[in-house]
Amino acid sequence: MAAENIDDVVDGLAGIVREAGRAGDRVGYFAALYRQVTVEVRTAIHGGLFDDGARMDRFDTHFGNRYFEAYDAWRRDRSGPRCWRKAFGLLDDADTVIVQHLILGVNAHINLDLAIAAARTSPGEAIHALRRDFLLINDILARVALAVQDSVGALSPLLSLLDQVGARTDERILDFSVRRSREEAWYNAVLLAGQNEQEREATIERLDIRAAVLARLVARPGGLVRPALQLIRSTESDDVPAVITHLDNAVE
């Protein structure tokens, strides 16, 4: 699928959520989170929050299409960016907890896709005028992600164990930091915006490799986190459609 505007992105994500709910597919976990982010961004555009609403519509469309391209590639032949393959590859893993699925998606979308979408929206020197709106859209992404993570508590009664082993504090979940990744995404967006095609390809390859490494750390953490995750998983709901519905209503 390919979106032409932010309304198409919302509709595309809603379609994935609906189909995942019917099929009991965990891909609906992150899609539900992302749909709510996009709805919030669209509301902010209509409310005049951004300096350039039309530009942010294009930005969000590029951003959404990165996810759709990765999703379609995985469904087609298990291809696509490394970090997305790591995320999608665990959808059938019964030992992966809900919050891990969410963070694996957030990792790929922030650490790879966000900078690429920004550079495509505002190439060259135009990237600098995007900074304020970029930071605003990042804030929306982080706020919704945290709201959804908090809602997971109703589905994961022992999620607080991650706090006790130091793996979940504020915006830090396991080995993934939303705040640090948002800051790095802007740096990489400026870098990509000023590069030629060959340089961009090399930078995107580097970003994908790094995001895939982070995905492995989130998927298979060491130390006390692993047994804590096993306990959390033993008490989580196994009703995938119900979990998707719960997550899809976490913000609204």
Rank of each mutant, 00 (worst) to 15 (best):
L91D: 14
V190L: 01
R210H: 13
I137T: 13
A219D: 05
E205W: 07
G124Y: 09
A126E: 15
A167L: 04
I16V: 14
W186M: 05
L247H: 08
E236I: 09
D72T: 14
T121Q: 04
L136K: 14
A94Y: 01
L49G: 01
T169P: 02
L155E: 04
A126Y: 03
I103S: 06
F68M: 07
P81C: 03
P227A: 14
Y34A: 09
A212W: 06
Y71Q: 04
D238G: 09
I244W: 02
D51W: 08
V37A: 01
P241A: 08
L91A: 09
D95W: 12
I204G: 05
D60G: 10
V9C: 03
V152S: 13
D248E: 05
G15K: 00
R180Q: 06
L159G: 05
F88E: 02
G80F: 03
D7Y: 04
D60A: 10
L162E: 08
G89F: 12
R172I: 11
F59W: 14
E125D: 15
I204S: 06
R179F: 03
A3K: 02
A185H: 07
R22S: 09
Q164T: 11
D57L: 02
E252N: 05
Q149F: 12
V97M: 06
K86M: 14
N249D: 11
A211Y: 09
S237P: 09
T61M: 02
A142K: 10
T245N: 12
A193N: 07
L231C: 12
L159R: 15
R76V: 10
Q100F: 10
L146N: 15
L102A: 13
D163Q: 08
G64C: 10
D238F: 05
R226I: 15
V225C: 10
R82S: 07
R168A: 11
D248T: 10
L141E: 09
